[in-house]
Design a protein around this nucleic acid. Sequence first.
DNA 1: TATTGTTATACTCTATAACTATA
DNA 2: TATAGTTATAGAGTATAACAATA
Lengths: 162, 162
Amino acid sequence: MGDEPAGRTAPAGMRQLSPVDALAQLSFVVHRMLEQRAAEHDLSIIQTRLLGVLRDRNPTINELGGLLGLDKSSTSGLVERAERRGLVAREPSPTDGRSVLVSLTGAGRSLVSEASSQFERDISAFLAHLPQRDRTTLTALVTRVLVAHAAEQGIELFPGDR
Amino acid sequence: MGDEPAGRTAPAGMRQLSPVDALAQLSFVVHRMLEQRAAEHDLSIIQTRLLGVLRDRNPTINELGGLLGLDKSSTSGLVERAERRGLVAREPSPTDGRSVLVSLTGAGRSLVSEASSQFERDISAFLAHLPQRDRTTLTALVTRVLVAHAAEQGIELFPGDR
DNA sequence: TATTGTTATACTCTATAACTATA
DNA sequence: TATAGTTATAGAGTATAACAATA
């Protein structure tokens, strides 16, 4: 994971990261931004993802586990801790007596909205280091590689497409 | 965090992610690759980072905590669990009777080498979705934004520069 | 006195297994 | 019987605070 000679698009004298290092570093930087913003609201990454997922859904514990990639027991505990903080609510499913529906409370919705808008500002500020033209190019290239990767994995990158 | 109209660099008909979504998604994908490769070797992300940091250093517990962003007590426990698995070794510092030097064992070095070369192959395969020319452009743009961000934070992106 | 590291304690997060209630 | 959810248990990972040993 070392350095490499300067490439076409870099200003004279600037060193280049290897493609692997560039993506790995970028991933860490973005992940750390999210982590720090979440921490300011006393949220972990997984709690933030929980609230995020609930913004446009009222899933059962089981569905939530699927969305977050967690076992049902882990999901149960996660929801329990969020409920104790007043961020989410549980209610029995009207159609299946075994199921529980999870939803955001007003407090949970406020918290996730604030955290995510701050995170968006962080990313915008980070990208503001590039001129508009390069930013557009970067976004387009990243979109292309993500679309190709999602297609390979059989995942819908743009929900709502048929 | 929605979609946006297609941009300059996208093929006709392809939808665009917003810049924020593009970076966030990219970060998740890369992070998940690292997590899964690490898990195949029964390593967590933090254990993997520990081994990675030790590849070219024999730091004290304190220095290690600084490098990993952990409290000394957390670092002590992390090293203890890695030592129990035979991946790292502790030895008293010859120059300071209070300090402990941490180093990779042969087993630890093998493990981190294998995991990181697999991770590098994952990233390469991921980037292979783009033609060489675009890959170079992407890497250069990411390097530029990381360099600018690191400079702003007062961090050395290229260790060894003076 | 200050610093280094460990330990005690507490909490989050995770999984497996056993259990209850419902289908 | 099968499924949904909770609970008991175990372990990693984290921090704060108290401690021992060394500087």
